[in-house]
Nucleic acid binder design. Structure first.
Lengths: 195, 195
DNA sequence: ACTATCTTGGAACAACCATTTCAAGTACCC
DNA sequence: GGGTACTTGAAATGGTTGTTCCAAGATAGT
């Protein structure tokens, strides 16, 4: 009996995700979301419930569609150190060139601003950190098994270091840091791990 | 002939600095500045010119009073690796405990949000990055001279790595990261540099 | 004491914010 | 085809934003 939606909620969510990714939750107004998605205020509120909940949904979508696939590929790659290097290579490429250049990482961006005060967002950030660190840890354990690592290197500690390094890369890329320089720093760091 | 100011501009600037440091430029309103400084809107605008210019002044004050003294101490410390370790120890202590716990670094915070779009702010962030990296480089060169470093380690590359690591520390500390864990990560990283 | 020149308090401003409301429109089931 | 349950458009709400304006107050030189 009811009318059906005149738009695709998933497509609208993707548009909102990109908007919040690029501009942050605080700077992107509902008016901007309306303009970006093309749908009406009423439809927005009826479908997503409000700005905060829409941001939550967008952040979850980013984690599911952007971050986690990269983590999974890193963890499933069987090559060890080259897998880690390629992970950072892909990260830096996305951050410094192409459609999303200068946008940074939506999760890293969420560490500041209004979104940061929300307990649910903080939990998502902690989740993200754990997943990133664990994927790096897995890849480093593969490298250890294949004898690619210095004997004295602790893979857990090295994974934590690389995770923090990734935050630094994401942060500086937003200020226009040079891609070659960032990748060189990562390469130099990984060279320290080698046998 | 004129009247004189009924307040101390430098004290007011310090209050504004702390407000912007903790909450960011976008989230702290002029009303908040008025409340924090105790002085009137008119006096604020007459003295500092507007919100953007006030934020500029506050950020410059942060660099001059907070960041640069730490950089100078690091560069002037003659102990090499222990100096680097103590630099990070002090950083983590400020970020995770005491009056400014959870505030992060004002410069790192400025990498996100409205302030980031301002060319003058971006230039300050690049300046800050260069100063941090150079101070680390200087300390590492001291370590190299004293034979504390592995022969194959390039001090320039290692300084860049540590700078990015510091950004990661500042970022994660805002989300409540554990001080001991952060310091352990730094210590483990520095251990890789050792001879 | 008078005046010129600044500071100060507080109201007023227009623009924007997220959200709500409601009438009008629309598609499905019976 | 009628009725019902939903969607949609657009206006309106109450609050906050940064900034401006102006009268009232205060100080230093004459």
């Amino acid at each position: 009996m009811p009318d059906i939606k005149h738009f695709d909620p998933e497509l609208a969510l993707e548009r909102a995700e990109r908007l919040f990714w690029q501009h942050g939750a605080a700077e992107a107004s509902i008016q901007d979301v309306v303009a970006a998605t093309g749908l009406n205020r009423s439809s927005l509120y009826a479908t997503f419930g409000g700005k905060q909940q829409l941001y939550h949904a967008a952040l979850r979508r980013y984690l599911r569609h952007r971050a986690q696939p990269a983590f999974r590929q890193l963890a499933d790659d069987g090559r060890g150190l080259p897998a880690v290097r390629d992970f950072f290579g892909g990260l830096i490429a996305v951050r410094c060139s192409g459609e999303h250049a200068g946008w940074g990482c939506m999760v890293v961006n969420a560490h500041l601003g209004t979104e940061h005060h929300d307990p649910e967002v903080r939990a998502l950030l902690d989740d993200h950190h754990r997943q990133l660190r664990d994927a790096l840890h897995t890849a480093l354990d593969v490298a250890r098994r294949d004898g690619q690592l210095s004997p004295h290197l602790a893979t857990g500690a090295a994974a934590e270091t690389l995770a923090l390094l990734a935050y630094g890369v994401n942060l500086r890329s937003r200020n226009g840091a040079d891609a070659d320089s960032l990748l060189q720093t990562v390469t130099d760091t990984l060279a320290l791990f080698g046998a």
